[in-house]
Design a protein around this nucleic acid. Structure first.
Length: 190
DNA sequence: GATTGACGCCGAG
DNA sequence: CTCGGCGTCAATC
């Protein structure tokens, strides 16, 4: 059931205060997966290694892992998507990789949402000429590059925050760090 | 086919 | 405001 992958990867980490960030690379230096921040190094590494058991930890300071932390804390970093592995993967690849063109299209749309603004699941669907609002949510839920591909900027049409793999409270925190106003669990529009 | 979603909309309480 | 129920469609079983 739990799909694993034999390919060898490198995991780099970064610590900021009590949060640990992790990034998984292929041998070609393409980013395969980003982990949401965790309270321990083990947990952060595990977020990657559970999909890629054949890994090696890197000691070098890693710019992406550092950028990840900065973005989480609300800095507006212009990240080059060229570093991400955005190709459609074989079905034998681990879960939460991009496997269909629909998922890829959704992820690419989300990537274009500017810092400090939000879009709804419905708007994403509409921009793809689709009514599959729920499928958009499901596809975003598989986002292998959370924070860098800003899935936290996608909210519900009624203004509520919506789901998040790291839990809605984390989504709220990231949005607030970006300066978005939230009151009574809803995005405040002015 | 049948079930399951990080959803949307409307109507009832 | 909350809740149920139905709409909708891609992915998965």
């Amino acid at each position: 059931m739990n799909e694993k992958n034999k390919s060898k990867i490198i995991i780099s980490t970064h610590k900021h205060e009590n949060l640990y960030f992790a990034v998984g690379y292929s041998e070609k230096k393409k980013i395969l997966r980003i982990a949401l921040p965790q309270k321990s190094l083990e947990d952060a590494v595990n977020e990657i290694s559970k999909y890629y058991p054949n890994y090696q930890l890197s000691n070098e300071n890693n710019k992406t892992a550092q950028n990840l932390s900065q973005m989480y804390h609300g800095e507006n970093i212009d990240f080059d998507l060229e570093h991400l592995e955005l190709d459609i993967c074989e079905s034998s690849e681990p879960k939460s990789t991009i496997k269909t063109s629909f998922e890829r299209d959704v992820i690419l749309k989300v990537a274009k949402i500017p810092y400090g603004s939000v879009k709804t699941y419905k708007e994403i669907a509409k921009s793809l000429n689709s009514h599959a609002y729920r499928a958009v949510g499901t596809a975003i839920g598989k986002n292998p590059f959370p924070i860098i591909i800003p899935c936290h900027r996608v909210i519900r049409s009624d203004g509520k925050i919506g789901g998040f793999r790291g839990g809605t409270p984390m989504k709220v925190e990231i949005l607030k760090n970006e300066g978005i106003k939230i009151e009574a669990s809803k995005i405040k529009v002015d």
